[in-house]
């Protein structure tokens, strides 16, 4: 399933009708990584949401031969998975949060608890965090749980909006190490990030697509 994510002539508007970006073209090879750059308010977050087919846009979006229409939105989003900047967890414990997407009809694999525990551990979250009430965790812990939830099923591309914004330096480097490992396993990355990027993601300046 090594397919590139290609974006052709994608144009977006904010929900209030304001034009944000116009005719965005970009191509991310399988397991590649890009970092979207541009001043705030330009539409970086909206573009990420549009790549996940969560925001209406005109233009073409494809993963190899597949499109959001050919796969259907739910299956597209399992392959091109957004992890939003603000951590949002469901009620219940962390395990329930990580397992929940495997209850959807679009699920293509079974919940792998061992992998989940290993990923959490690599982010300095010990196994007992699985049984803790998700919403009682600190913001930094929640952000890491959300990241694990978005990567667990191993999407073709992970769309990460400021994935380390609530983390200290130690956790941040652990996240980078996890992302590097996932990339080696074939997961492509599209990042929005203000920090200097140790992942070697190719910077893409969105200023030129400003509407």
């Amino acid at each position: 399933m090594a397919a590139a994510l290609s974006v052709r002539e994608l144009s977006l508007r904010a929900y209030d009708g304001r034009a944000l970006l116009e005719a965005v073209c970009l191509e991310v090879p399988a397991a590649g990584a890009v970092r979207l750059r541009g001043r705030s308010g330009l539409g970086k977050t909206t573009l990420l949401r549009a790549l996940a087919a969560l925001h209406p846009a005109t233009g073409q979006l494809a993963l190899g031969e597949e499109t959001p229409d050919s796969l259907g939105r739910p299956r597209w989003r399992r392959r091109v998975t957004l992890v939003a900047q603000r951590p949002r967890l469901f009620g219940g414990d962390v395990a329930a949060n990580l397992e929940r997407p495997y209850g959807y009809r679009s699920a293509e694999s079974a919940f792998d608890r061992e992998r989940a525990v290993a990923m959490l551990a690599s982010l300095d979250l010990p196994e007992d965090v699985m049984s803790r009430e998700a919403r009682s965790l600190s913001v930094g812990e929640q952000q890491r749980v959300c990241l694990v939830r978005g990567l667990l099923h191993r999407p073709a591309f992970a769309l990460l909006d400021e994935p380390t914004s609530a983390l200290d330096d130690e956790s941040r480097s652990r996240v980078h190490a996890l992302l590097a490992r996932e990339r080696e396993a074939g997961v492509g990355l599209v990042l929005v990030s203000h920090e200097d990027d140790p992942l070697g993601a190719e910077p893409i300046d969105l200023e030129s697509f400003r509407a």
Binding site: P74, T81, F90, P101, Y104, S106, A107, R149
Partner: peptide
Amino acid sequence: AELIEVELALGASRRE
């Protein structure tokens, strides 16, 4: 709304 969008982002249908 944000939580519902998280469900959709993880592959839920709108009914789910």
